[in-house]
Lab assay of single mutants.
Amino acid sequence: VAKRKCPDHGLDLSTYCQEDRQLICVLCPVIGAHQGHQLSTLDEA
């Protein structure tokens, strides 16, 4: 199974943004649109 990539940063989608209910990469909460959002690992989601 191919991993999905972040459209903004090109990295694997490895984190779940609880606020926006979507998968994001590790850079999205650091330099992207998900700064300050509640996050979960994929195992927790």
Rank of each mutant, 00 (worst) to 15 (best):
I31M: 13
T41P: 12
Q35D: 05
H34D: 02
L13P: 04
T15D: 12
G32E: 03
Q35P: 03
I31W: 06
V1A: 06
V26G: 12
C17N: 01
P7I: 07
L13S: 05
T41L: 07
V1D: 06
V1I: 14
D43L: 06
L11H: 14
E44C: 09
L39S: 11
L13W: 05
C25G: 01
L27D: 15
V1Q: 05
S40M: 07
L27A: 09
H9A: 00
P29K: 12
E44P: 13
G36R: 05
L42F: 10
G32C: 02
C25E: 01
P7N: 02
K5R: 05
Q35N: 07
Q35W: 05
G10L: 06
Q38G: 12
Q35K: 12
T15I: 06
K5E: 05
K3N: 09
Q38Y: 05
Q38V: 08
D8P: 01
A2N: 15
H34P: 01
L11A: 06
Y16E: 10
H9Q: 00
L23S: 13
D43Y: 06
Y16K: 08
A33M: 10
L42C: 13
K5G: 04
C17S: 02
V30D: 12
L42G: 15
V26A: 14
S14L: 10
C28L: 00
D12S: 06
P29A: 07
L11T: 05
C17Q: 02
C17P: 01
D12C: 03
S14D: 12
G10R: 05
Q22K: 14
K5V: 06
Q18K: 14
R21G: 14
E19Y: 07
Q38R: 12
D43C: 09
S14N: 15
C17K: 02
K3E: 13
P29R: 09
L39N: 09
I31E: 15
C6W: 00
C25A: 00
G36N: 12
K3H: 07
T15K: 15
A33T: 13
R4D: 13
T15P: 02
R4H: 04
G10I: 03
I31F: 06
L23A: 14
K5C: 05
L27Y: 08
A2M: 12
D12F: 05
V26I: 07
A45K: 09
C25I: 00
A33E: 10
H37P: 02
C25K: 02
H9R: 00
Q35I: 09
L39V: 11
A45Q: 14
P7R: 05
D8E: 14
V26Y: 10
Q22P: 01
C17F: 03
G36V: 03
Q35H: 13
D43V: 09
C28E: 01
L42Q: 15
L39C: 08
I31N: 15
L27S: 11
K3R: 08
A2T: 15
L39Q: 14
P7F: 03
K3C: 03
C28G: 01
L27T: 04
T41Q: 13
I31S: 15
P29E: 11
I31P: 03
Q18D: 13
G10C: 05
C25F: 00
A2K: 15
C28T: 00
P29C: 04
